[in-house]
Design a protein around this nucleic acid. Structure first.
Lengths: 262, 262
DNA sequence: TTCTATCGGTTTATTATTTGAAATAGTGTT
DNA sequence: AACACTATTTCAAATAATAAACCGATAGAA
């Protein structure tokens, strides 16, 4: 750990519940010399990563973090980052992977990749609008969102796509409960015949599910080994997507995953 | 300038038009040794301010900037609210509007919007660091801040950007005095040719100017009607921004505005 | 008031770390 | 094979960190 890392690590002491930190407190937190801490702070202020309250003389996160975040988003929006995650997910599982973003009461595809490993694979339209009640991604969202969302979906009289679709209220509630319990949204031919999907959501800074990453494969290829691998990779992808967004994963979901043995 | 400032200044090379930068390019840009540059970069990557593309090995702004921005916004919400104000301002004036925050002796862009009404419009880089002496926003700040700020700017030998830049002390003092008198910072091609800007500051709870809202338009489109409209809308936007921040507008500025007939 | 303690900020000499330049390896391109 | 680039090493020279002391302001207690 060099000087830069030491100085930057000061920034990690800020959180939603810690907006301002004074010099003495920083000296305490970092364990370094007061003069050094002070020099770190003034350099961070000079760059704008921190700013100093003129009256309390305490330090808080500065305008530069906003400026940099603006640049990153305008140049490297969420989509590109998620695409990379999806590519990796598809590569690791040798199956079709996709990411979607919440859009009203549906999900819209954000990125996808079909693995070239298998000729028989699930194909996805980039422009597809995905219903919440009939897909793995939808169940993952419903299981980790406010209950009001589920009630809205039920009120909208979910469409039946296949004989396996959870089109009636009881079946849907049951599927959502199962997803909440396991930490994975799973759809066995609920949207299209012969397609088995597994999904996990990713989250924004309020631990609110904003989208999903998912893997879809032909039912003929489903096996305990494959689902185990897919689930493991989905957790990685879900974490990465959440991190990219600067979000946090709710503790409930982490618990569900560890209940499921991950 | 210490190590930290040197390392952080690498981040300033990113902009909307520069998403990824490689090691050799950074060495060029920073003028430092290759090994040092490399050490800087790896430390910035470790913290997450940068991330490295696994294939091109180039560096781009990392997830930490989003995380930090989220923390700052959740604890000190400003950007989202100001963005809405800027959108409205741009909509109402059919011109490019932007907001900036004080950062040391410069301003850093917080939000912007270009009106789609005109094909010929002023484009703004989100990453831009704005000098105080040459821009409408800067003059608005200088006119409503402690005189010490102006003295510091003068001591810093203001750079000349165009033939219109108030680069000498007398011209700058005059421009600031005019801004204080009228209540508006105005820059006629002081920073960029063909760009006319008008700005008003917004304030914190100590009636201290912390940022600006501004409108920029091509000089060819400037007219009494437009400047009148822009000024009216700027006052609205400045009040709204100040209110969002929980600040108060100094009586002096209110008087200047009413002197100007608003 | 005066004494004391705390906090932000600054200085100093000594000690420890970082830097720069050059040399070297690996990698992918032309 | 030559080239351009990232990555890593070496070590004398340059720079930063440390600890301790000190300043000035502020706040509370005697």
């Amino acid at each position: 750990m060099g000087t830069i890392s030491n100085a930057l690590s000061l920034l990690n002491h800020y959180s939603e519940t810690r907006a301002e930190i004074g010099l003495a407190e920083f000296k305490q937190l970092s364990g370094r010399d007061k003069a050094t801490t002070y020099r770190y702070l003034t350099e961070l202020v000079d760059f704008g990563l921190l700013e100093q309250d003129p009256v309390s003389r305490h330090y808080r996160l500065g305008p530069a973090v906003l400026r940099l975040a603006n640049v990153r988003e305008s140049v490297f929006p969420l989509r590109n980052a998620i695409q990379a995650i999806i590519d990796r997910l598809s590569e690791a599982t040798s199956e079709t992977a996709h990411a979607s973003l919440m859009q009203g009461l549906t999900l819209s595809t954000l990125a996808k990749r079909e693995s070239p490993k298998h000729a028989a694979r699930v194909s996805f339209s980039q422009s597809q609008i995905i219903p919440l009640h009939a897909t793995a991604s939808g169940l993952a969202i419903l299981a980790t969102s406010d209950d009001k969302l589920l009630e809205q979906v039920i009120k909208g009289t979910p469409e039946r796509y296949t004989v396996f679709t959870h089109a009636d209220e009881a079946a849907l509630r049951d599927a959502v409960a199962k997803a909440a319990q396991s930490g994975f949204g799973i759809s066995d031919q609920g949207y299209e015949e012969e397609v088995y999907g597994i999904a996990v959501p990713f989250f924004d800074e309020h631990a609110c599910a904003i989208g999903t990453v998912a893997v879809a494969c032909p039912t003929s290829r489903v096996s305990p080994e494959l689902t185990e691998l897919v689930k493991r990779e989905l957790i990685v992808a879900g974490r990465a997507s959440t991190k990219t967004r600067g979000g946090t994963i709710p503790a409930k979901l982490e618990e569900a995953w560890s209940r499921s043995g991950f």
